[in-house]
Amino acid sequence: MSRKKIIISVIGLIIIIIAGYAAMMWFSDDRTYNRELNKARNAVAVQDWQTAKQHYQASRKVRVSIENRTASEQLDYLARADKAIKQQNWESAKSLYQRAIDTNGGIPLLKKAAKTNQRIVNAEQDSGKYKASVSSLEKSLDKKDKDLNDLKKQMSDTNASVQAVQDSANKAVADANAAADKANATADSANKQAQDAQKNNKQDEHKDDQKDDNKDK
Protein backbone atom coordinates (compact mmCIF):
# COMPACT_ATOMS: atom_id res chain seq x y z
CA MET A 1 0.00 0.00 0.00
CA SER A 2 1.37 3.32 -1.01
CA ARG A 3 1.93 6.07 1.48
CA LYS A 4 -0.69 8.20 -0.28
CA LYS A 5 -3.37 5.56 0.17
CA ILE A 6 -2.55 5.24 3.87
CA ILE A 7 -2.92 8.99 4.38
CA ILE A 8 -6.25 9.02 2.53
CA SER A 9 -7.48 6.08 4.58
CA VAL A 10 -6.51 7.76 7.84
CA ILE A 11 -8.21 11.01 6.82
CA GLY A 12 -11.30 9.06 5.77
CA LEU A 13 -11.33 7.24 9.07
CA ILE A 14 -11.00 10.49 10.99
CA ILE A 15 -13.89 11.97 8.99
CA ILE A 16 -16.04 8.92 9.69
CA ILE A 17 -15.25 9.10 13.40
CA ILE A 18 -16.06 12.81 13.56
CA ALA A 19 -19.28 12.35 11.58
CA GLY A 20 -20.28 9.41 13.78
CA TYR A 21 -19.59 11.39 16.91
CA ALA A 22 -21.58 14.36 15.57
CA ALA A 23 -24.47 12.09 14.63
CA MET A 24 -24.38 10.46 18.04
CA MET A 25 -24.35 13.85 19.75
CA TRP A 26 -27.20 15.10 17.59
CA PHE A 27 -29.22 11.98 18.32
CA SER A 28 -28.50 12.28 22.01
CA ASP A 29 -29.48 15.96 22.01
CA ASP A 30 -32.63 15.14 20.15
CA ARG A 31 -33.54 12.51 22.70
CA THR A 32 -32.82 14.88 25.58
CA TYR A 33 -34.83 17.62 23.89
CA ASN A 34 -37.83 15.35 23.33
CA ARG A 35 -37.61 13.87 26.81
CA GLU A 36 -37.56 17.31 28.44
CA LEU A 37 -40.36 18.50 26.17
CA ASN A 38 -42.53 15.52 27.10
CA LYS A 39 -41.91 16.07 30.79
CA ALA A 40 -42.77 19.73 30.38
CA ARG A 41 -46.00 18.88 28.54
CA ASN A 42 -46.99 16.38 31.24
CA ALA A 43 -46.42 19.05 33.89
CA VAL A 44 -48.48 21.52 31.86
CA ALA A 45 -51.33 18.98 31.70
CA VAL A 46 -51.54 18.94 35.49
CA GLN A 47 -50.96 22.68 35.77
CA ASP A 48 -47.64 22.29 37.59
CA TRP A 49 -46.15 25.48 36.21
CA GLN A 50 -42.84 25.31 38.07
CA THR A 51 -41.96 21.81 36.92
CA ALA A 52 -43.08 22.62 33.40
CA LYS A 53 -40.86 25.66 33.31
CA GLN A 54 -37.85 23.68 34.53
CA HIS A 55 -38.25 21.14 31.75
CA TYR A 56 -38.91 23.73 29.07
CA GLN A 57 -35.74 25.53 30.14
CA ALA A 58 -33.81 22.25 30.01
CA SER A 59 -35.11 21.62 26.49
CA ARG A 60 -34.15 25.16 25.52
CA LYS A 61 -30.55 24.50 26.49
CA VAL A 62 -30.50 21.80 23.83
CA ARG A 63 -32.50 23.59 21.19
CA VAL A 64 -34.53 26.76 21.07
CA SER A 65 -37.98 26.22 19.59
CA ILE A 66 -41.21 28.17 19.31
CA GLU A 67 -42.78 25.87 21.89
CA ASN A 68 -40.18 26.21 24.62
CA ARG A 69 -39.86 29.95 24.05
CA THR A 70 -43.57 30.83 24.11
CA ALA A 71 -44.31 28.28 26.84
CA SER A 72 -41.77 29.94 29.12
CA GLU A 73 -43.46 33.28 28.57
CA GLN A 74 -46.93 31.82 29.24
CA LEU A 75 -45.72 29.94 32.31
CA ASP A 76 -44.36 33.18 33.77
CA TYR A 77 -47.78 34.77 33.46
CA LEU A 78 -49.52 31.72 34.93
CA ALA A 79 -47.17 31.47 37.90
CA ARG A 80 -47.64 35.18 38.62
CA ALA A 81 -51.42 34.76 38.32
CA ASP A 82 -51.27 32.00 40.94
CA LYS A 83 -49.48 34.39 43.30
CA ALA A 84 -52.09 37.08 42.61
CA ILE A 85 -54.85 34.60 43.43
CA LYS A 86 -53.21 33.73 46.75
CA GLN A 87 -53.35 37.45 47.54
CA GLN A 88 -56.96 37.58 46.27
CA ASN A 89 -55.86 40.18 43.73
CA TRP A 90 -58.46 39.11 41.19
CA GLU A 91 -57.93 41.92 38.68
CA SER A 92 -54.22 41.22 38.44
CA ALA A 93 -54.84 37.46 38.12
CA LYS A 94 -57.37 38.00 35.34
CA SER A 95 -55.02 40.30 33.49
CA LEU A 96 -52.15 37.80 33.75
CA TYR A 97 -54.36 34.96 32.51
CA GLN A 98 -55.36 37.14 29.58
CA ARG A 99 -51.73 37.75 28.73
CA ALA A 100 -51.09 33.99 28.80
CA ILE A 101 -54.05 33.53 26.44
CA ASP A 102 -52.90 36.32 24.12
CA THR A 103 -49.29 35.12 23.86
CA ASN A 104 -48.41 34.75 20.20
CA GLY A 105 -47.93 31.10 19.23
CA GLY A 106 -48.88 30.08 22.77
CA ILE A 107 -49.28 26.44 23.76
CA PRO A 108 -52.95 25.36 23.45
CA LEU A 109 -52.93 23.48 26.76
CA LEU A 110 -51.62 26.55 28.56
CA LYS A 111 -54.22 28.72 26.87
CA LYS A 112 -56.92 26.27 27.92
CA ALA A 113 -55.67 26.28 31.53
CA ALA A 114 -55.55 30.08 31.53
CA LYS A 115 -59.11 30.32 30.21
CA THR A 116 -60.43 27.84 32.79
CA ASN A 117 -58.68 29.60 35.65
CA GLN A 118 -59.85 32.97 34.39
CA ARG A 119 -63.46 31.74 34.55
CA ILE A 120 -62.92 30.58 38.13
CA VAL A 121 -61.46 33.96 39.07
CA ASN A 122 -64.39 35.75 37.39
CA ALA A 123 -66.84 33.66 39.40
CA GLU A 124 -64.92 34.33 42.62
CA GLN A 125 -64.76 38.03 41.88
CA ASP A 126 -68.50 38.18 41.12
CA SER A 127 -69.19 36.31 44.33
CA GLY A 128 -66.91 38.73 46.21
CA LYS A 129 -68.66 41.73 44.66
CA TYR A 130 -72.04 40.28 45.68
CA LYS A 131 -70.82 39.71 49.22
CA ALA A 132 -69.32 43.22 49.34
CA SER A 133 -72.57 44.67 48.04
CA VAL A 134 -74.60 42.83 50.69
CA SER A 135 -72.12 43.86 53.36
CA SER A 136 -72.26 47.48 52.17
CA LEU A 137 -76.07 47.41 52.24
CA GLU A 138 -76.01 45.94 55.75
CA LYS A 139 -73.58 48.63 56.89
CA SER A 140 -75.77 51.29 55.31
CA LEU A 141 -78.85 49.90 57.11
CA ASP A 142 -76.92 49.80 60.39
CA LYS A 143 -75.93 53.43 59.89
CA LYS A 144 -79.53 54.40 59.12
CA ASP A 145 -80.65 52.63 62.32
CA LYS A 146 -78.00 54.46 64.31
CA ASP A 147 -78.96 57.81 62.74
CA LEU A 148 -82.61 57.14 63.55
CA ASN A 149 -81.77 56.33 67.17
CA ASP A 150 -79.61 59.45 67.43
CA LEU A 151 -82.47 61.53 66.02
CA LYS A 152 -84.92 60.02 68.51
CA LYS A 153 -82.51 60.78 71.33
CA GLN A 154 -82.05 64.34 70.09
CA MET A 155 -85.83 64.81 69.92
CA SER A 156 -86.18 63.45 73.43
CA ASP A 157 -83.46 65.85 74.66
CA THR A 158 -85.15 68.76 72.86
CA ASN A 159 -88.51 67.91 74.42
CA ALA A 160 -86.90 67.83 77.85
CA SER A 161 -85.26 71.16 77.14
CA VAL A 162 -88.54 72.72 75.94
CA GLN A 163 -90.27 71.41 79.07
CA ALA A 164 -87.56 72.94 81.24
CA VAL A 165 -87.89 76.29 79.47
CA GLN A 166 -91.65 76.11 79.82
CA ASP A 167 -91.37 75.23 83.52
CA SER A 168 -88.99 78.12 84.02
CA ALA A 169 -91.32 80.50 82.18
CA ASN A 170 -94.31 79.28 84.23
CA LYS A 171 -92.34 79.85 87.38
CA ALA A 172 -91.35 83.35 86.25
CA VAL A 173 -95.00 84.13 85.45
CA ALA A 174 -96.06 82.79 88.85
CA ASP A 175 -93.34 84.85 90.56
CA ALA A 176 -94.41 87.92 88.60
CA ASN A 177 -98.04 87.33 89.55
CA ALA A 178 -97.07 86.93 93.18
CA ALA A 179 -95.03 90.14 93.01
CA ALA A 180 -97.95 91.91 91.35
CA ASP A 181 -100.32 90.63 94.03
CA LYS A 182 -97.91 91.81 96.66
CA ALA A 183 -97.61 95.22 94.96
CA ASN A 184 -101.40 95.45 94.71
CA ALA A 185 -101.73 94.57 98.35
CA THR A 186 -99.17 97.25 99.21
CA ALA A 187 -100.98 99.75 96.99
CA ASP A 188 -104.31 98.81 98.58
CA SER A 189 -102.81 99.27 101.97
CA ALA A 190 -101.37 102.66 100.96
CA ASN A 191 -104.71 103.70 99.51
CA LYS A 192 -106.46 102.65 102.66
CA GLN A 193 -103.98 104.59 104.73
CA ALA A 194 -104.43 107.60 102.46
CA GLN A 195 -108.19 107.30 102.71
CA ASP A 196 -107.95 106.96 106.45
CA ALA A 197 -105.71 110.00 106.59
CA GLN A 198 -108.08 111.94 104.39
CA LYS A 199 -110.98 110.86 106.53
CA ASN A 200 -109.13 111.87 109.67
CA ASN A 201 -108.30 115.22 108.12
CA LYS A 202 -111.94 115.78 107.25
CA GLN A 203 -112.99 114.87 110.76
CA ASP A 204 -110.35 117.19 112.17
CA GLU A 205 -111.54 120.01 109.88
CA HIS A 206 -115.13 119.33 110.89
CA LYS A 207 -114.13 119.47 114.55
CA ASP A 208 -112.26 122.73 113.97
CA ASP A 209 -115.30 124.22 112.18
CA GLN A 210 -117.55 123.25 115.11
CA LYS A 211 -115.03 124.79 117.52
CA ASP A 212 -115.03 128.02 115.48
CA ASP A 213 -118.83 128.04 115.36
CA ASN A 214 -118.99 127.58 119.13
CA LYS A 215 -116.54 130.47 119.56
CA ASP A 216 -118.66 132.71 117.32
CA LYS A 217 -121.76 131.86 119.27
Binding site: V46, Q47, T116, N117, I120, A123
Partner: peptide, 15 residues
Protein backbone atom coordinates in the same frame (compact mmCIF):
# COMPACT_ATOMS: atom_id res chain seq x y z
CA UNK B 1 -50.63 15.34 44.22
CA UNK B 2 -51.62 18.96 43.79
CA UNK B 3 -54.10 19.87 46.54
CA UNK B 4 -53.85 23.62 45.95
CA UNK B 5 -54.72 23.33 42.29
CA UNK B 6 -57.52 20.88 43.02
CA UNK B 7 -58.87 23.24 45.68
CA UNK B 8 -58.96 26.07 43.17
CA UNK B 9 -60.73 23.91 40.61
CA UNK B 10 -63.20 22.86 43.31
CA UNK B 11 -64.21 26.42 44.15
CA UNK B 12 -67.12 26.70 41.67
CA UNK B 13 -68.27 23.19 42.63
CA UNK B 14 -68.36 24.17 46.31
CA UNK B 15 -70.51 27.15 45.41
Amino acid sequence: KNPLREMMMMMPRKK
